[in-house]
Each structure stands twice: as C-alpha cells, then as structure tokens.
C-alpha cells in the first residue's frame, strides 16, 4: 500500500501524473518532489495530507492554474504542458476559498462564470439549472452571496465548478467549516456527480468523508507521496477495530476487573476501549455488560482506521521543513 501501485486497472486513466516536481521561486525546497500517480476515469480520488503538504500546489497544477515545468500531467490524454487550454476546459475547480463575488447574487455569480467558461449561448442556462439543482441553490439564487450561510457559500462554490460540466472535478476541502446538514448536502451532491461518470479529485481533513466518497487515496506530505492505494486497503489495515463504550454508571472494582481481564482499556471511570475485530466480538461485549448489569450509555464502533493509518503515516514522515 505504501509503495505506489498501479490503480488504473483496465479502466482508462483520467489523470496521469508522472515525476512531477514543482519549486516556487526563492523557495529552499520543492513544494512537490517526483510525484507520480494515476486516477481512473469515473473514480473519486482522495488527496490527503496535512496543511502545507503540497496539496494546493498539486491542485493548481492538475486544474490548469499553473503549467508544469518538470514532470508531466495528462488529463484525458491532454498534456498540461502543451495543451493547457484543453486541460482547463476539461476541469472544474471548487477551491477551498469562497472564490466568487460576495456582492453579487448567486445567479449573477453563475452568470459571470458561465461567461468566463465561454459556455454555449444556447445551453448555458440548462447547465446553470443543472448545477443549481445538484447543489440545491434554487431558493437562494436572487440573494447576494454575502448573505449566504457558510453551507450555502460552499454549495455556490461547488455549483460554479460544475458549470462547464467538467470531466474532472477538483474539490478542495469542500465541506470545511460548515454544519453537519450542509456537509451532508454537499457530500450527497458529490456522490450524485460521481454517479454521472465525472472523475473527482477530493481533498478533506474529514476522514469519514474520504472513506465514504473515495475509492482510492493518495497521502502527500512534505511534497512527496507517502502512501497511495485503494481505500479498502486502508480500511483493512492496522490493528483490529475497537469498540468505544461509555457506561451509564461507574462499575465497581469487581466489574472493572472482569472487563479489564477481557481486554478493556480504561480511559476514565466510565469509558473504555474494547478490542472488537468484528461485529460478532462487539456482541460479546454487549452481552457481558448485560450480564454484569451495566448499561452502555454510548457505543461507538468502526472508528476510522483510515484516520489512524493517516496519522501514523504523517507522523512517520514528520518533517519541520516547509512545503507549499
């Protein structure tokens, strides 16, 4: 898993990145070093990494904001070095910033970007309607964007990226800083977009989102790929899972001893982690609690293994150096 593996399979690649290196002027070290990976058509590719790992630089190169100088990127067969305009035309970018005009209404923003994308005069309104529907912006189109909630702003940001019906959609932390309901709306929209066959490159610090949406991931740190592979590989990796249990009351010494003997690792007088590699094992724990007369106030199972693996990988590769 940590060794780059060919994930393209039989499906044609949407994006191929090979030996990509990028250095900012006057920077002491490259922001990206010898990056290579492939993204399958129609897949959702998670790009993970801590802040400053090089994700944004990679996004800017993939989406056509910058032209690669060393290494190569091809998007749907078009080289970003020689055919940047085609690469841009195939791409849609929803940046992490609210990259639209707060003083304009939702409609006016989409209207402007439809012009900027040079959409067809006959069909741009259909495209807009489609983007508005996917992002559920219909009731808010005539309000100024500055009056939108954080979630609406994220949705408008996404809708703009959908205007040109991109073959590859780049989503840079599309759910950061918004409430759970808005996150759900956006992740549902992303899932819907994916079903249309659009290839998605997705970054997020929310691992459960990545697990739910992506089928491959690539972890970047200090400008290098530290791990890459199918999401399933990460979900099966590492220690068996744990079930996290919070009891309604503190157990007495005998009860506590019995649970400890079964492998419970106490966090405090009511909470403990119990090893549970499967749901069957989890059932055993619940039965034991019932036999002891202890009521579980909260049970959490399936804690993201991806997050654990991710943190382990990042920690292993920790480096105080800078990267864009």
């Amino acid at each position: 898993m940590t060794e780059p593996a060919e994930t393209g399979g039989k499906t044609a690649p949407a994006i191929e990145v090979s030996h990509l290196t990028w250095r900012y002027p006057r920077a002491s070290r490259p922001a990206l070093s010898d990056i290579s990976f492939t993204v399958r058509k129609g897949s959702c590719f998670g790009l993970l990494g801590p802040n400053g790992a090089g994700k944004s630089t990679l996004f800017s190169l993939l989406s056509g904001i910058r032209r690669p100088r060393q290494g190569e990127i091809t998007v749907m067969g078009h080289s970003a070095r020689t055919s940047l305009a085609q690469v841009r035309a195939l791409s849609g970018l929803a940046p992490q910033d609210f990259a639209f005009y707060p003083a304009l209404t939702g409609f006016e923003n989409l209207d402007f970007f439809a012009g900027a994308y040079a959409l067809d005069k006959a069909s741009w309104k259909d495209r807009m309607a489609e983007a508005v529907e996917i992002c559920q912006l219909g009731d808010h189109m005539n309000k100024r964007a500055e009056a939108y909630s954080g979630g609406l702003k994220r949705r408008l940001n996404l809708a703009i990226a959908l205007l040109n019906k991109p073959a590859v959609l780049y989503l840079d932390e599309p759910t950061v800083g918004i409430d759970a309901r808005s996150r759900r709306t956006i992740t549902d929209a992303v899932a819907a977009i994916r079903r249309t066959g659009t290839t998605i490159v997705y970054t997020s610090h929310y691992m459960e989102e990545v697990e739910a949406l992506c089928d491959e991931i690539c972890i970047v740190n200090n400008g290098r790929i530290v791990s890459r592979g199918p999401i399933a590989d990460y979900q099966q990796a590492g220690d068996p899972g744990h079930v996290h249990i919070r009891l309604a009351r503190a157990p007495d010494a005998g009860e506590r001893e019995k649970l400890f003997a079964m492998g419970a690792q106490w966090s405090d007088d009511r909470r403990f982690d119990a090893p549970a590699g499967s749901t069957l094992k989890m059932g055993e724990w619940l039965e034991t609690l019932g036999a002891l007369g202890l009521e579980a106030a909260q049970v959490r199972y399936g804690e993201s293994r991806l997050e654990k693996v991710y943190i382990d990988l990042i920690s292993d590769n920790a480096d105080d150096g800078e990267a864009a």
Binding site: R88, L93, P95, A99
Partner: peptide
C-alpha cells in the same frame, strides 16, 4: 476568484 478564473481559459 482570480486564481479560479485561470481554470476557465
């Protein structure tokens, strides 16, 4: 937005 516009040709 300026950065975003660079993806629009």
């Amino acid at each position: 937005t300026q950065r975003r516009l660079r993806t629009t040709n």
